[in-house]
């Protein structure tokens, strides 16, 4: 029986997102040319929340896009079932500062795919990576620029992010896998 522990509750997620929103603006030197791009599925919700938080503090509604990386994965043949392909809709990326938003950063393969996909849509001036949870375990030389929180995990563990819009509650939970 795998055990499940809560890493962040709704209030902690709220605080983390508020801090991440101001870090995004700080790192980008304001909101000029800033574009948030959420990775399907929960990255899209998190990007929308960052957009609202930035609007509250800066009074500017920055453009938001969504990205589905399914068609850019490198494992069509090797892994099991995957979600049906979701929607991709991106604003103009040329010359912009693009902040890719995702819920969990783990192997880095999703981000690798997202970078490839962004490159097919335009030439951003700069791309930053913003994640709610960094759980370590990278398989590629990729790091996040803005991080909500860190979790120390081993292969077999799972980090589940729940967002109100899809799951009815906000939480980050660590599910320990069976020891190998």
């Amino acid at each position: 029986m795998p055990n499940r522990t809560q890493l962040l509750d709704d209030r902690a997620i709220g605080r983390a997102l508020a801090r991440m929103a101001s870090e995004v603006v700080e790192r980008c030197g304001g909101t000029d040319g800033l574009v948030l791009v959420g990775i399907q599925r929960r990255g899209v919700e998190l990007a929308a929340r960052l957009q609202r938080l930035i609007e509250q503090s800066e009074g500017v509604r920055v453009p938001v896009g969504k990205l589905d990386i399914t068609l850019y994965r490198d494992d069509l043949q090797t892994v099991g079932p995957r979600p049906v392909v979701g929607e991709t809709s991106l604003p103009d990326l040329d010359g912009r500062t693009v902040v890719i938003v995702d819920d969990v950063l783990y192997t880095g393969r999703t981000v690798r795919a997202a970078l490839d996909e962004c490159a097919d849509f335009g030439r951003p001036r700069r791309i930053l990576l913003c994640v709610l949870v960094d759980r370590g375990g990278r398989e590629l030389p990729i790091q996040a620029d803005i991080i909500g929180g860190r979790a120390s995990t081993v292969p077999g563990d799972r980090v589940d992010v729940f967002v109100n819009e899809l799951d009815g509650r906000d939480a980050v939970e660590l599910v320990r896998g069976e020891p190998k």
Binding site: P81, P83, V85, T107
Partner: peptide
């Protein structure tokens, strides 16, 4: 072409929870 090549979808229809981020 995509589906025959192995792009098998998740029938459950629940929002996907990707295993490798």
């Amino acid at each position: 072409l995509y589906l025959l090549a192995g792009g098998s979808p998740d029938w459950a229809g629940a929002p996907g929870r990707g295993e490798d981020h």
